[in-house]
Design a protein around this nucleic acid. Structure first.
Lengths: 343, 343
DNA sequence: GTTAGCACTCTATGAGTTCGAGTGCTAAGA
DNA sequence: TCTTAGCACTCGAACTCATAGAGTGCTAAC
């Protein structure tokens, strides 16, 4: 168990290290406002905190830096979020000032602003497109052998895919098919599309369209979209601004992980509600063992959900980021819900 | 003027430096096959080459490295391209093995493979979308106040934009408008769309649609697409692999330039035919003064054009890249033309 | 329980050496 | 006249050594 004074010293130490990136010594701490003990007493307490695993030394006679456990305790018990400065709020709200009508554009811009404000990397995950429902399907023939399939969702998202068709196909057959598809598939969420296509429309199509098989197969294949996540990054290069990252090899690994979309599920604890902080090796990816990730979810309407993440060094300004994300999450939820339901 | 021997020495020096990244000394050169003179003679020649500005020293008693002028002379007169290895060809052709039907997908994948093969960054510029012509326009209402406008081009590219409409607009008016637009605008290239929209359809719309003004204005605004370049990167992080780039500040500037799309015209000499090499400060951007950029154009059909660029250190493997790009350019031209015209 | 005092540890910094790769120059040889 | 062996010289890289300074841990006094 830690005493009041130890808690205070731990908190001040972490705050100072976050700010300065330098190991914190007892003399330095003694000068801090709020701390009344002498440096000798602080030394004793620091030794105790180190013994309990909250602090570490970089070498025998250095100051202390927070350990993973120290950061964890700090964010769990000692964190007093800073209120979001008016200035930041203005900048964040600027997204909604302009008449941007697309959810994706709003999310993308928010990612940019967040990374600018924080100097860290931001990752914004939009709502799962596959939950959106079909508003309209169409097929536009391009040339005798080619056509493009277009799906518009209720959210205004448009998916499209070029696919090949039998070169001598009767255009009226395409029209028939599109009509049947629209009749049957409007309102179906994208992730069910492939299944429903088969279940409900296959038989119908067979009745109406000559050589439906060939057409249907290529069309179905076109709709088997590789599930691209609805993810936006801001400030990927901000990693290079952090003095904590000087090893080019490490930077490469980290950026590699971010560049490839496929690690998103490991970076972001998808499905988690509220604010989550992952420190250092608490992250699933080895490349991120020197990073902390703060994530928060936001809602659009009643069902859909997105996430916001800030990736920075373990020595991240938790006080600021936590309150900032809290604000952004609420704001995005409110504005996007309005946009989505107000339609 | 340079003697035969000086040319040989210059060539071998540049090749060696490209390969080793170390300043090249006279003893080292004397050992190279093809060079018969003694190191003392070579020293004299090196001094002469330095005097004429083709080589430089990093400090008084170091070996020589090529100067900007040296590289320039090398690529202009001494470059003997390496034939493309069968292995590379196989990998490049793999793009066409799979049945990819979209130009954009082919270009994107080619960018990836090029960067993998070279360990440099590749930038592929697709044909200018704005030259494509309208195949079909449609407007899909989403909710009382919103609709999405969709433009399909003859190439199968789909542009879409959400825009707001008068909430109490009669759906039949939208239909009318779409019919008029399609009647008038099919075949119009995208870059003319905005103008033609005004010239040809405004009057017609006025006749047929009540409250056309409001609808028309928001629709027109939606079509004022920010001209996004059709550009794909491969291996942005490969910069971090180059020993030439160790200064994090420089790396940041360079990646910054690449991250922002807007510098493309400065990186790529758009409109240039054939193969171009820009060395160091020959590049328009200050951030690229330590880079060389090799670009080559390719054609799709008779009119459209794209570019391929490889960005690497000045100490780039010109022999390999030049022949590689030459090959890829021809291959892309052939395959994309086939795809485009075979439609 | 707190603190002043002090010996001790370790890093960072800078000066001084040495080593080796490489140069430029000179003079002898072809 | 061109080439080359020889040699003194230069400079950076790597290493050692000394010093200063920040910080610790411990002891003993308050």
């Amino acid at each position: 168990m830690l005493t009041e004074r130890q808690l205070l010293i731990l908190k001040v130490t972490v705050n100072d290290y976050i700010q300065s990136a330098q190991p914190v010594g007892s003399n330095q701490l003694a000068k801090k406002p709020g701390i009344t003990s002498s440096s000798a007493t602080i030394r004793n307490e620091l030794a105790e905190l180190e013994g309990q695993g909250y602090l570490e030394k970089t070498h025998t006679s250095s100051g202390r830096i927070p350990s993973q456990k120290g950061y964890r305790y700090y964010v769990d018990h000692l964190l007093t979020p800073n209120p979001v400065p008016q200035q930041d709020i203005v900048q964040l709200r600027s997204v909604f000032e302009e008449k941007v009508t697309e959810t994706e554009e709003i999310i993308k811009r928010s990612a940019g602003i967040l990374s600018e404000l924080t100097n860290y990397t931001s990752i914004l995950l939009g709502p799962d497109i596959r939950k959106h429902t079909v508003k309209k399907l169409s097929i536009v023939p391009l040339s005798p052998g080619m056509a493009v399939a277009i799906i518009v969702t209720d959210s205004g998202h448009v998916e499209n895919r070029v696919f090949s068709i039998p070169p001598d196909l009767d255009p009226s057959d395409i029209e028939k098919m599109v009509n049947i598809l629209n009749e049957r598939l409007i309102g179906v969420p994208l992730h069910d599309l492939h299944k429903r296509l088969e279940q409900e429309t296959l038989a119908l199509l067979r009745q109406h369209i000559e050589r439906y098989g060939e057409l249907f197969r290529t069309f179905q294949q076109a709709l088997l979209l590789p599930h691209t996540d609805n993810v936006y990054y801001g400030g990927k290069l901000n990693i290079l601004k952090q003095p904590d990252f000087h090893d080019i090899q490490k930077i490469r690994e980290l950026m590699d992980v971010m560049e490839e979309g496929k690690h998103i599920p490991e970076i972001l604890p998808i499905g988690a509600q509220g604010l989550q902080i992952r420190i250092g090796s608490e992250n699933a990816l080895a490349a991120m063992e020197d990073c902390s990730v703060i994530t928060v979810s936001y809602d659009i309407g009643d069902e859909q959900m997105g996430s916001i993440a800030i990736v920075g060094p373990k020595r991240m300004d938790y006080r600021r980021i936590v309150s900032l994300l809290d604000y952004v999450s609420g704001d995005l939820s409110k504005e996007l819900t309005r946009l989505f339901q107000g339609k």
